[in-house]
Design a protein around this nucleic acid. Structure first.
Lengths: 234, 234
DNA sequence: GCAAATCAAGAGCAGTGCTCTCGTTTGTTT
DNA sequence: AAACAAACGAGAGCACTGCTCTTGATTTGC
């Protein structure tokens, strides 16, 4: 991530500082007007520099957007990890699950544009670099660790349908992403809960529950509660 | 929807035809290069007319995009209804559920850009007009009807957590959207399944399962199967 | 001390959404 | 049939975008 071990020279320091300033300005614009309206020229104006100068720090608008993407993933990941860590009684997996879920939703509601950048439609052309993947794993990692802890504690999700041969092989990476490995039931239940969590948040945030569900807070809490039950956490 | 009962005059006919041509060209571009890259000028070039002429038919790029949005909703709605109707044995709610789910996913995979337009981040300042809502209800309507039929057939979903007071009031529109009304368990289970369905498709289509799930087809089938079980359909 | 690398700035290109004006065509009304 | 108004297509133009190239100044490392 931070491949700037020691900016010794004055120029290197200035470069690091300016890079940060560009990213900050861009992040502000992103949160306010969204990724589609983010403009390199506007960032340059905000910083009082020529637009062409920005290209010395980020080779393209997409590169700048990618940096913001990673920043957002890390930000959300930190929020999730903080919510998880706040539950001092680590055996309270239900409390941790609830905390994580609400942390994701609160973060999404606080900064809808950044959430949309992460989990909405991929922006123009979009070639998701591998850099983003590693940052994105922070949040899924928190969930997988939680499932592993619950499994280790002897909790069992509600019985799941037997996995097809193909599916067994398909979700191998998920199973073996934590130690000890997740069993099949925990894996499929976890994947379903993962999809339900982000599906609910996205549907809510993108307006698909309009006039269908009246109280988004109550509904989300209910869904999280239901998922906890299906996961065997509560 | 169609407020052109009888285009009598030649001008009205030409207008209807040109409107259709613009929409067709835009739809083609949308499917190919996505909503972000859709250009009024490109559409005008494709049709051999001046870009300013297009504005006689659609007041803005966003209006054109909204028309495409409605078109896409109707297209997906038709695909879903067709898949549902294809199951001649109407009592086979499990088969209908599976058919609907795979219809949505197949449609999404066939035209990812159009799916992203519907269920990804809202593009135009997110001022979703009410016109789109009515078109969007076609697909949710199919699901709700299916749940109602299952309930009427005496099927019961797996026991759900008791609804909070707030949630009971919150999902009233969902419950009363079909006759006879859905009971609380069917409503919450249905909403959760809805979120899981679109969550799974979105996560897959937007690249979040990359290297986590290897076989998207197998995984989706497994999730649909699991949801059917939780819904008590199978 | 000097060559080389780095930098900011400006001009410029090709593209965009959108507006305004202009002359023409069409439909309606007298 | 004539007259008028509405609708139309085309073109020019504005303000904006991402991005490139060149120019000249500054800083760096040897």
């Amino acid at each position: 991530m931070s491949d700037t071990p020691a900016p010794r020279t004055a120029r290197a320091i200035a470069r690091a500082e300016l890079t940060r300033a560009i990213l900050d300005s861009a992040s502000r614009q992103l949160a306010e007007i969204g990724p589609a309206a983010l403009s390199v020229r506007a960032v340059a104006r905000d910083l009082g520099m020529a637009s062409s100068a920005v290209y010395r720090y980020f080779p393209s608008r997409d590169a700048l957007l990618t940096a913001l993407l990673i920043q957002a993933y890390d930000d959300l990941g930190a929020a999730v990890e903080a919510a998880d860590a706040q539950v001092t009684e680590r055996a309270d997996v239900d409390g941790r699950w609830t905390g994580i879920c609400h942390a994701v939703r609160d973060w999404a509601n606080d900064q809808p544009h950044r959430y949309a950048l992460l989990y909405g439609s991929p922006v123009p052309g979009y070639a998701a670099p591998d850099d983003t993947v590693t940052s994105a794993t922070r949040i899924t990692g928190a969930l997988l660790t939680l499932f592993r802890d619950a499994q280790a504690a002897g909790l069992r999700p509600k019985p799941a349908r037997p996995l097809s041969r193909a599916e067994t092989a398909s979700i191998e990476p998920v199973r073996s992403s934590v130690e000890p490995h997740l069993d099949e039931e925990w894996s499929i239940r976890g994947l379903v809960a993962w999809a339900t969590l982000f599906g609910t948040i996205s549907l809510e945030l993108f307006g698909h529950m309009y006039r269908g569900v009246l109280d988004y807070d109550a509904h989300f809490a209910q869904v999280v509660d239901q998922l906890a039950a299906d996961l065997g956490l509560a």
